[in-house]
Design a protein around this nucleic acid. Structure first.
Lengths: 215, 215
DNA sequence: ACCTCACAAGAACATCTGTTCTGTTATTTT
DNA sequence: AAAATAACAGAACAGATGTTCTTGTGAGGT
């Protein structure tokens, strides 16, 4: 095999590694490859793996069982890990994440979402809804709410607002009335809106999505 | 540790596995975890891995070196394209996908979701909700409903059912009453349930998630 | 023919690695 | 306090696994 291309057998090996990986979520051992490619000896595999490594088709970690790496699938940038910073429930403040120490890696739970849900927005975090105090907003106990951390919202947007005097957090449609009052409208049109003065409310975030998982 | 939650050490282990995987593109061995988490013995790791498996935080393959799977492996194959086969609205049949010609590639709209939402289930499809006839089930116009295609559901599960005589599709909690009747219970406890005879309903699918996107 | 070289078979070896066994130390329950 | 249970420590075993060594084969070139 003079060329820089892969031999037929080597191509089969690489393909098997990829399929094995997809099926099992971990790399195959040398003997898995023997069995999977119908080869006769581990030394054949080792021999070809060395060539494959030299050609850059795989990367190996010596003396490490199943230490085979495929060149990183370029994807995976389509998944974002959104921190679930806490729970939201009436009577509890909303834990807005500290923007400086946005520590996705640490303690916090995270939820994986595809990038098309975020749509390129910055400062997105998630809350788990506790209790059914927001059922009139079509949000149930256990739902996950995705929020964008903002302090001001447009008329008609659904926002997480903190009602200072009531010491209560809720999700409602936000309207600034001509009278200067704020109208917080439930999503269910059969329910009555709440009216509040602007200095009694504090916008915590804009709702961009609701995810409900059932078992 | 009575709770279903993970202990501190177990959380560290899971995090280490994920980081190790991200760094090396293959899972750690038990002894890698010992070193990486500053533990003292492989048996401690094995002990905790067994618990983690029981709690569903990981999956293990016995007798396989580095045979640890994370439920959502940090590799690329984490995004699935779910076909949005149509709309659901009262008075319209539900377009259950033909199981033989499950053609994800074709024309149909799809929605990208991460694998952890599907949780390994087969036959998942999505519907877009049209109209607000299901508001009592906390589902609004424009919501996306993820369904698993099944014909029978357990008591208490939320299902997409087709009411034959009413020619109406809806999502409700499904209960088979001792009387033999079917009770379809809205998610909102303030609403009244529907009673139907078993031969008047047809289960189209099990609801596994609801996704609401706001702008 | 002879040599070289890419490639393969089979066995053997030394670790690596999951698992188990026994015992010990905390932590909780009774 | 006693008993029970959860959690950890250390060692040892058996199998898995990467690696190497020896030998064989066949094609191409000289």
């Amino acid at each position: 095999m003079k060329t820089g291309e892969l031999s037929d057998k080597q191509r089969r090996i690489v393909e098997f590694i990829r399929n094995f990986w997809l099926d099992n979520n971990y790399p195959p051992s040398v003997r898995d490859i023997v069995a999977g490619c119908g080869l006769s000896s581990t030394s054949v595999v080792d021999y070809n793996l060395k060539i494959l490594e030299k050609k850059g088709a795989i990367r190996r970690h010596r003396e490490v069982s199943r230490g085979i790496e495929l060149p990183s699938p370029p994807d995976s940038s389509n998944i974002l890990n959104i921190p679930v910073t806490g729970q939201i429930a009436a009577g509890q403040p909303i834990p807005v994440p500290d923007n400086d120490t946005w520590d996705v890696t640490s303690n916090a739970d995270t939820i994986e979402v595809t990038r098309d849900i975020i749509r390129g927005r910055e400062g997105v975090y998630a809350l788990k809804v506790k209790g059914n105090s927001m059922i009139e907003d079509l949000i149930n106990d256990g739902d996950i709410v995705l929020l964008q951390s903002v302090s001001f919202v447009e008329n008609g947007e659904t926002a997480a607002v903190w009602l200072k005097s009531e010491k209560e957090a809720t999700l409602k449609k936000f309207f600034l009335e001509p009278s200067g009052k704020i109208r917080l409208q439930p999503a269910n049109s059969q329910m009555q809106p709440i009216y509040a003065s602007p200095d009694n409310i504090e916008v915590q975030g804009r709702v961009i999505a609701v995810i409900r998982q059932l078992d």
